[in-house]
Each structure stands twice: as structure tokens, then as C-alpha cells.
Design a protein around this nucleic acid. Structure first.
Lengths: 106, 106
DNA sequence: CAAATATTCAGCATGTACGCTGAATATTGA
DNA sequence: TCAATATTCAGCGTACATGCTGAATATTTG
């Protein structure tokens, strides 16, 4: 996947950037503690932001693969993609392998 | 900790933002695979960026608590703070508790 | 069809991020 | 002390992020 400037938009960058904003972390937790799915309006109601602002946060989370969505009548239901969080665990796992014992600091 | 605009700069935000940039993730891995410590110049040599650009990345990583540093003669040694990565694991752990079985999606 | 509801799109202002260059600082060695 | 080495500070330009408001779209209900 390559963005408009030709730069490779790596999945790690999308996920970490998405999680960098407190409102977006709160969206994920809110959906999770609601059972995994919520309508856009229900999510927006949690925040004091204009609802259009929350819409954009939801789009960023979906672009990062952390949410999926489907229309249901006049509502849009967002669903938490918990598996996507494994990407972070995978990255963190790099730091659990001892890389070179001869250079280990005591 | 409160930043210049009076907003609480939460630790999660600092850490996730720091990890959002590919160069900064690479800095952490580079130091790790070098045994946990590296001089600023050694780190900068890995990148094609101007070294001043890497200096700023190092400062951001240090501000996020992911690196610590100490002068050693005319060099500055950066040390990886692996423990700080546990903050992310802690946040991810929120998603491993079943929140409300009555709302669970099958 | 018209009105109400739910959500998104488009555009604006402000602030921050990130690359750069040039100058400054600190330490070491001749 | 002077020159070399290692790093940081200051400032610039461009691009993007994030809040906002107003308009547009899609769907259901009367």
C-alpha cells in the first residue's frame, strides 16, 4: 500500500498513529465495553466534540483496520477489530528476543 | 504533567505518538539489536536524514520515556528503556477482559 | 412525496510534525 | 589555546492533524 506521495504507508504507522489520539483510544474502549459493536451516533454521543469530528476519528480507526463498519438502515454500525491489535503485540515481540549476548549490557 | 496549553499530556499519547513514526521505531530496534545502548552519532549514521533530524527523534523518544541518555565524554549515549514498552501491553490488556457477557457478539 | 433522522462530505483556521540549513555548544587532543 | 569531533539549538517551509461550521447524502416514517 502506497499513499499519494508515493511513500509506503506501513501498517504499524497507521495503527500507532491511530492509537496516538486519546479520543480514538477511548472510542475503541467504548465499543469494546459495549460488546464490540456500536452505531456511529452512539459513539459520538460519548464525546463533547462536534459529531463530525468523531466521524473523522472513526474513519481513521477504520483505515487503520481497528474498526470495520456496515450500514444498518439509516445507521452505521462500527465493529471493533480486536485481532488488529495483535499487530502491536507482534512489534513489541521484537524486544523479547536477546539479540546478541556478546553486546549485552550487564 | 500538563503541557503549555494546559492539556494533560498523557503517557499513552506520548508513547503511541513516539512509536507512530517509522524512523523512531527503527531507532529503538537499532539500539536494541546493538545491545541496548548507542551513541547519538552511531544512531544517526543508520539514517539518511540530516543528523539534526535524528537528534529530534531521539529527544521525542526520550521525552516519551522510551530512551534515557547520559553524556560520555564528547558523546551522548542513549539507552533503551524496555520497561516503558509495558505501558502499551498494559493498555492492550484492557481488551482481554470480557466486559459484559450479555452483550457479547457470537 | 415530505419531513425527520443518521451520518458524511467539504472547506476553514490553527497548531504541530518533520524535513532542511546554519550557528552554537561542549569536550578532547595536539 | 586551537582545531577537530560530537551533538544540540534555532529558525524556515511544507504538509498534515484536528477542531469547527454548513451543506449534502441516505434511509425511514407519516
Amino acid at each position: 500500500m502506497v499513499d499519494e506521495s508515493g511513500r509506503h504507508e506501513d501498517a504499524y504507522e497507521a495503527v500507532f498513529s491511530a492509537l496516538a489520539h486519546p479520543a480514538r483510544r477511548r472510542v475503541l474502549l467504548t465499543i469494546y465495553f459495549n460488546g464490540g459493536s456500536m452505531a456511529a451516533g452512539e459513539i459520538a454521543a460519548v464525546f463533547s466534540h462536534a459529531w463530525q469530528t468523531t466521524t473523522r476519528h472513526l474513519q481513521i480507526l477504520e483505515a487503520a483496520g481497528l474498526l470495520s463498519s456496515a450500514r444498518d438502515g439509516r445507521m452505521r454500525i462500527y465493529h471493533l477489530e480486536r485481532k488488529r491489535l495483535d499487530l502491536i503485540r507482534d512489534w513489541l515481540a521484537h524486544f523479547t528476543i536477546t539479540p546478541d549476548p556478546t553486546k549485552e549490557t550487564p
